[in-house]
Nucleic acid binder design. Structure first.
Length: 753
RNA sequence: GCGAAAGUGGCGGAAUUGGUAGACGCGCAGGUCUCAGAAGCCUGUGGUCAUUAGACCAUGGGGGUUCGAUUCCCCCCUUUCGCACCA
């Protein structure tokens, strides 16, 4: 009987769906295993690169099922977001319609890949049933002072006409559309993630089964640093100005002070400046620059004409304004120690400001302040304080502790921990998202929507012009409402939430996906969570995973869940790329193996036709995607599954090769026909001692490799086993092969046994 | 600039704790089947030298530790990724 994957696969996919084999009764006993793939944004068609992610998850899920675990593998849709709205503007389709039809298509694709999800728990973030809890969550955060409205300089994308979170600005550009991001002062809603900075940082140490890389990225992003706040008296202001430093031991070397141009005291300091107009012009120029431009401009500054008093040397030190000092970090003011900080050093050299050495290396000469080419920056035991009064001779760590004690004793400052992390800006001036449940009343100010009035539903019949921002703001019926407090006329908030709010708690919702009385069922959540295995792309290393960890802690603090970390084990799969050459004439892709070089130009081997050289990643924007449809039509889903997992270690980037698929197909064909050659069950085809040995070696190898995500070598072990088996067929060993192969090629193996 | 990871055949990639480098697959070559082709099957396939037997060289480059190094240590080169004036 020939191997006809199409027939077999459709049959079994239907059978699994009909029998609802993946449906889990969350109340049934058993050793739970919660397996979760990051839920996708339904953008339309899925290519083989997406497939890798879900096939990986499915193989693992099926493996744990076979081990007898109560395995849960749910799926949902991260369904709000800009592309849907852009599609509406461009093509006149309603975002909801666009989203729903994409969901249908992707669901069908999952089915064709033979992936088993528990669809009884399906959720979509654009359903009022889901986003009402988004709104409820926001109200709880608001009650606890963790959601607040503030005017702040924000990142504004002029093309998408909306504000972006810091995390969504990459190299000064909009992560989505690549436009240059500008700064604007706007009233926006923030979530106070900074309150959790310390816990988010400390929690990373407990995540022993997360990739080090991801933890490091989060740690850097949170950017915890320990130092001291110190007050410097400014006679001209009649008060002190506070600075933050991580090197209080170098305070004797602070020869000037630098403020961010946005610092609130700047106006007073330069009020009687001899060339005030010029300084103001300079400030304005700097403020109009993006962070990127500022950095490219090099170090620039202006002298305010005023002085501060160094609290340890009692010398007057000049106060400067500098483009390299950031208002958003620390106090927006620094003490400059040019001898021991490279940035201060460059600034000092630029404006001929004094450099003083207050730290010496353990060996060798004390640097010469006049001639040194760069700052001397050493913060360990090997360096000691010099020219520094009470801390003279102390090694740096000890000097830091001692000077902080003195600062605190004199009440001019204190030990301080600061973070690079800033509050999470969640307002978006966009339609397709969760409406922020707030009302503005002239009399009562900002009033939250009462919980029993949730959800605040997104009106569906609004016009999409693509101009002048949020269509929601122009919908009178939505905007005009009454104040829940005084009953008078009031207006609704028309901003919607960043979609990362939606995805920051969905993993908990699956457990009680359709419970319309509460956001999560605490008892069930505590049984099934945290997620045992979370799988998704590395691109979420900071954004999604940090927000999810934050929101999980807020849920914990509200008593809704009994854990602080949502994902016990994390795996980031690599991207699939397709390297090849695009045929200039036909627009098709030719694999690198089929190309030879003639006179330095790529030429297709068989035809001798000239090609245009192009190499790019497999993603929509590059249109060299491999659609799985043809592949499945020709070879079957099991072949795609085996090839996708065989191609490379799953955490690595992998290059797709159309020829490589053939190998997987041959392998499955051989396994299929092998059964026919083994003599019937009774007595025939018993295993030799060496085959039995090989069988057990293979069971051991494959089992261990599955648990370590080494699917590529698990498959090679199975190929090896099948090669041995072909020499000396045995019914028993063959049955083992099929079992081990089942999570990888479920349709074929199911058909065979 | 700071931080992290990685460099193995023509290609994707193997090599538990240091122990036969190149498993498995692609590709390629020869054979078989066929009127012919495709598919399948069989054999071979790191490099150099040699008719053979075999010898020597090989895991980015250079040193070191060891009886023995892809693996451990030091220096250098290259690539990829992350952060980027965070005081």
């Amino acid at each position: 009987m020939p191997y006809e994957p199409k027939l077999i696969e459709e049959k079994w996919q239907q059978a699994w769906a009909d029998a609802r084999v993946a449906e889990v009764d969350v109340n049934a006993p058993g050793e739970k295993f919660y397996m979760l793939n990051m839920f996708p944004y339904p953008s339309g068609d899925l290519h083989v690169g997406h497939g890798r992610n879900y096939i990986l998850g499915d193989a693992l899920y099926r493996y744990f099922r076979m081990q007898g675990r109560a395995a849960l593998n749910p799926m949902g849709w991260d369904a709000f977001g800009l592309p849907a709205e852009n599609a509406a503007i461009k093509r006149g389709i309603h975002p909801r319609q666009w989203t729903v039809s994409n969901i249908e298509r992707e669901k069908k694709q999952f089915l064709r890949w033979g992936i088993l999800y528990d669809w009884s728990k399906e959720l979509a973030s654009c359903d009022p049933e889901y986003y009402r809890w988004n709104q409820w969550l926001f109200l709880q955060l608001f009650k606890r002072g963790l959601a607040y409205r503030a005017k702040a300089p924000v990142n504004w994308c002029p093309s998408d006409q909306t504000v972006l979170a810091n995390e969504q600005v990459v190299d000064g550009r909009c992560e989505r559309c690549n436009s240059i991001v500008v700064q604007r002062d706007l009233e926006q809603w923030f979530l106070k993630i900074t309150d959790y900075a310390d816990r988010l940082d400390a929690g990373l140490d407990t995540l022993t089964e997360w990739p080090e890389k991801v933890k490091l990225m989060q740690r850097n992003w949170i950017g915890r640093s320990v130092g001291a706040d110190v007050d410097f008296q400014v006679p001209a202001l009649g008060k002190a100005m506070r600075i933050f430093t991580t090197r209080p031991d170098t305070i004797f070397g602070a020869t000037f002070m630098v403020l961010a141009p946005e610092h609130p005291d700047v106006a007073t300091l330069i009020a009687d400046h001899s060339d005030r107009a010029e300084v103001e012009r300079w400030i304005k120029g700097v403020r109009n620059q993006s962070n990127l431009e500022r950095q490219e401009a090099g170090k620039e500054g202006r002298f305010t004409g005023k002085f501060a008093t160094n609290p340890f040397t009692n010398e007057p030190i000049p106060i400067w304004l500098g483009n390299f000092v950031l208002m958003q970090y620390g106090t927006g003011a620094i003490m400059a120690v040019p001898g021991h900080d490279q940035r201060d050093f460059e600034f000092a050299r630029q404006y001929a400001l004094p450099v003083r050495i207050v730290v010496r290396p353990s060996e060798g000469d004390v640097p010469n302040a006049e001639t040194m080419p760069e700052a001397f920056v050493v913060k360990d035991e090997s360096a000691t304080a010099v020219n520094s009064g009470l801390i003279d001779g102390l090694p740096t760590p000890k000097a830091i502790d001692t000077i902080i004690e003195e600062i605190e004793r004199r009440s001019i400052g204190k030990k301080m921990v600061r973070y690079r992390l800033r509050d999470w800006l969640i307002s978006r001036q966009r339609y397709w998202g969760t409406p922020i449940p707030m009302i503005y009343c002239e009399r009562d100010g900002i009033v939250p929507v009462p919980e029993d009035q949730l959800p605040v539903e997104l009106p569906l019949d609004v016009p999409f012009t693509g101009r002048e921002g949020n269509p929601l703001a122009k919908d009178e019926r939505f905007v005009n409402t009454t104040c829940p407090r005084c009953g008078g006329a009031a207006k609704r908030e028309t901003d919607t939430m960043d979609t990362f709010v939606d995805s920051s708690w969905y993993y908990a919702r699956f457990i009680s996906a359709h419970d319309d009385t509460k956001i999560v069922d605490t008892a069930l959540a505590n049984r099934w969570l945290p997620v045992d295995q979370y799988i998704g792309g590395i691109e979420h290393a900071i954004l999604h995973l940090l927000y999810a960890r934050f929101i999980c802690r807020t849920l914990h603090d509200m008593g809704l869940v009994g854990f602080e970390e949502p994902f016990t084990r994390l795996f980031n799969q690599g991207m699939i790329t397709k390297e090849g050459y695009r045929d200039a004439e036909h627009g098709t892709w030719v694999a690198i193996a089929d190309v030879e070089w003639v006179d330095g130009k790529p030429v297709q081997k068989t035809t001798g036709r000239a090609l245009i050289a192009e190499i790019s990643k497999m993603s929509k924007s590059h249109f060299n995607v491999v659609p799985p449809d043809e592949l499945i039509e020709k070879y079957g889903a099991d072949t795609e599954r085996v090839y996708t997992l065989f191609i490379a270690p799953p955490e690595k980037e992998a290059a797709w090769s159309d020829e490589g698929v053939v190998g997987a197909s041959r392998f499955l064909n051989r396994v299929w026909h092998m059964g026919e050659q083994i003599p019937g069950s009774a007595g025939g085809g018993s295993a030799s001692a060496s085959l039995t040995r090989k069988t057990h070696q293979t069971i051991d190898a494959v089992t261990r490799r599955f648990e370590r995500f080494e699917f590529n070598t698990a498959i090679s072990a199975l190929m090896e086993f099948s090669n041995v088996l072909a020499e000396a067929p045995s019914r028993e060993a063959y049955s083992v092969l099929l079992q081990l192969l089942h999570p990888l090629a479920p349709h074929m193996t199911e058909e065979l046994w």
